[in-house]
Design a protein around this nucleic acid. Structure first.
Lengths: 142, 142
DNA sequence: TTACTTGCAAAAGATTTGCAAACGA
DNA sequence: TCGTTTGCAAATCTTTTGCAAGTAA
């Protein structure tokens, strides 16, 4: 796996410690974090860091196609260091977001529908995740 | 078409003028409106109306399955008086939201994937709509 | 009558902005 | 050096909340 700084160099992105920090946190977490959560995970290493900077960096990394923003709940955004096409599942019970891949669906692959040019698709699925479903089935309503 | 008030009666929903107003505005607009836009369209008929009330009514109508909320852009929610399953397309150029129906896609119909129970799906498509695409093609970059 | 709704004002929470100081290349 | 980035504080914008007054059934 390419060192994070190498990823930046390849994209000709100026590698500041804060930018690398945000990117590393997202890569390592390997899941969906809010700006606030990223900020929290960076505070130890960057005591002077400001939340506004995290937002600004996330905006920049989005434009650089290193980070993706999703808004699967109505309250706040999450970010992840994965930019290939995939979809998301939100468990209404445990509130966790899962990645889902639906490889074979022609409708989701079309680049054009009714003259509309489709550049990007975000599939947001809502329901109950496997673990929560099993808990309910077993009568463990925790 | 059922009178709006009849829809409410069938669902045993108390029919206040403001609730009917929000619902009518959404039915008549037949498109996606923000809370602010709904509020704007109602001001003439309800001078005392407050935006907080619009939000509260929208929340209520959502729970009553008369209204659906979508969040296809990162900045604000839109509401529509259509609750059947369909998806949305956001034109990056003219910023308009379109409804799209993708009838034949098995992956989108599954009720369960990998043990995950899917209760709802929001498909958000992003791209260039037909009109904007044609304008670009014709060299009319307006 | 009475529980539910509305209007209002204020609060909350996420995100953005403006600007001076700091910094990477 | 110099244009870019960061930190900070304040602003903005959407949405929510608490509560008293009003209202549909």
């Amino acid at each position: 796996m390419l060192e994070h700084i190498e990823v930046f160099r390849k994209k000709k992105i100026r590698a500041t410690p804060q930018r690398l920090g945000v990117y590393k946190v997202l890569c390592r977490a390997n899941k969906h974090l809010t700006a606030e959560q990223i900020y929290g995970k960076m505070k130890a290493e960057f005591p002077a860091l400001s939340l506004a900077t995290v937002y600004s960096i996330l905006e920049f990394l989005k434009k650089s196609a290193l980070v993706q923003q999703i808004r699967i709940t109505f309250d706040k955004s999450c970010f992840e260091a994965r930019c290939d096409q995939h979809h998301h599942f939100f468990c209404k019970r445990c509130k966790v977001i899962f990645d889902i891949d639906i490889p074979r669906c022609s409708a989701l692959r079309k680049k054009e529908v009714d003259g509309f040019l489709i550049e990007e698709l975000q599939g947001y699925f809502y329901g109950i995740c496997r673990d929560c479903k099993n808990k309910v089935k077993d009568g463990r309503g925790d």
